[in-house]
């Protein structure tokens, strides 16, 4: 699992590549923590190359959303596959994020 972070004018884009399962979530947690530095702006989680997400991965998304909510920023989830969208729907996460 790889997270490529790129700063932008008003926030940051994190490109998530691979499977965000439980071990991978632990591995990339520091990268997600670093996104919180930009929580006052827009954090884009680019999921175009994300093939799987587990509960641990959902928790990372959720904590990013919480940090953005506290600082007046927002999280945009971009490019999710239908399988991941289904996971978001089943868990009630779909309407927690702006999905693009």
């Amino acid at each position: 699992m790889e997270v490529k972070i790129q700063k932008q004018e008003n926030g940051v884009i994190a490109e998530l590549i691979g499977r965000l399962d439980t071990p991978a979530s632990q591995e990339v947690a520091p990268a997600f923590d670093s996104l919180k530095e930009d929580a006052a702006g827009t954090i884009i989680l680019d999921c175009t190359q994300l093939s799987y997400i587990s509960s641990s991965g959902l928790r990372l998304f959720l904590s990013t959303r919480k940090a953005a909510g506290e600082k007046g920023g927002k999280v945009i989830v971009k490019g999710i596959s239908n399988d991941i969208r289904t996971v978001f729907m089943m868990t009630g996460f779909l309407n927690l994020f702006e999905i693009q």
Binding site: M89, M90, T91
Partner: peptide, 21 residues
Amino acid sequence: IACFQIGLTDLDILSSSVAPQ
């Protein structure tokens, strides 16, 4: 519906909107 959707997964975090949804 919930049993069918999540019963065979290991998803252990749910938003409280699942019930009304």
